[in-house]
């Protein structure tokens, strides 16, 4: 669990809200990654893209298509926000897989902040766009009349649980992956030189974690898009 401890970068124990910590460092590195991929990589503005530019275009096209498919055409104007979330999460996850790194997305504070941002943004947007009609999200008109109040209660609860599951999913996945690797590394430490099996297991889990890092970022933003669709079109 030491890998998750927040430490001030320049010594001392006091952590104020402005203290530069390892959180600051690794978040700054995600910004550097975004800059390299999306500013330096697309510098050429080439018609026939370079490798790094085509990667940036691939990510752009992938997320844009997802936003459009899931949220609908009118959701496309929130694409920059979704893209920001996706890039931050995916780079934070991938940087967290480097040995001795700090995974900012494994902290509930970080993921909960993002999930709450999405939650409040979507709720306010839904109320502004649909007014009182936004409440029809909870009143499932296709269900039998008797069941509707019950379903409404369930829907309301599930609506307010959304940010919890949304945030814990990401943080939990990141933490779980790192903890599993840590456990196998502990086995390797105990076995010493002959630790073939734990090293093999660590490699396998690492590969899985690479996949999970990208998939969780994808899942986070796809759920944000689903919530966005609910806000834009509350009538199911």
């Amino acid at each position: 669990m030491e890998q998750f401890i927040v430490k001030p970068l320049f010594g001392g124990h006091e952590i104020n809200w402005y203290t530069p910590t390892n959180v600051t460092l690794w978040m700054a590195l995600t910004i550097v990654c975004v800059l390299v991929l999306f500013v330096l990589g697309t510098r050429g503005r080439a018609i026939v893209p370079s490798r790094i530019q085509s990667l940036a275009e691939l990510v752009y096209g992938f997320i844009y298509k997802m936003v459009e498919d899931v949220s609908g055409k009118d959701g496309a104007k929130y694409f920059p926000y979704i893209m920001t979330l996706f890039l931050y999460i995916v780079f934070a996850n991938l940087l967290g897989l480097l040995p001795l790194s700090f995974t900012t997305t494994s902290h509930a504070a970080v993921t909960a902040t993002m999930a709450l941002m999405v939650f409040f943004f979507v709720t306010i947007l839904g109320v502004v766009k649909n007014g009182i009609g936004f409440l029809s999200l909870f009143w499932i008109s296709s269900a039998p009349l008797v069941l509707r109040p019950v379903l409404a209660i369930i829907e309301v609860i599930s609506y307010f649980v959304r940010p919890v599951s949304h945030s814990i999913r990401l943080a939990g996945n990141m933490m779980a992956g790192h903890a599993v690797i840590k456990v196998f590394a502990g086995f390797a430490g105990v076995l010493g030189v002959g630790a073939v099996a734990p090293i093999f297991a660590i490699s396998a889990v690492f590969a899985l974690e690479l996949l999970v890092a990208v998939i969780q970022a994808y899942v986070f933003v796809i759920l944000a898009c689903v919530y966005l669709r609910d806000a834009l079109h509350p009538h199911h």
Binding site: V6, I15, N16, W17, Y18, T19, T21, V23, T24, M27, A28, T30, I31, V34, L35, F38, V39, P80, Y81, M83, T84, L85, L87, Y88, T104, H107, A109, V110, T113, M114
Partner: peptide, 19 residues
């Protein structure tokens, strides 16, 4: 928490502006 949230917001705003 305040530290993390503060730096997260800074990061997100910077990424958003860059994008």
């Amino acid at each position: 928490y305040p530290n993390q949230i503060f730096w997260l917001l800074v990061t997100l705003v910077v990424i958003y502006l860059v994008l």
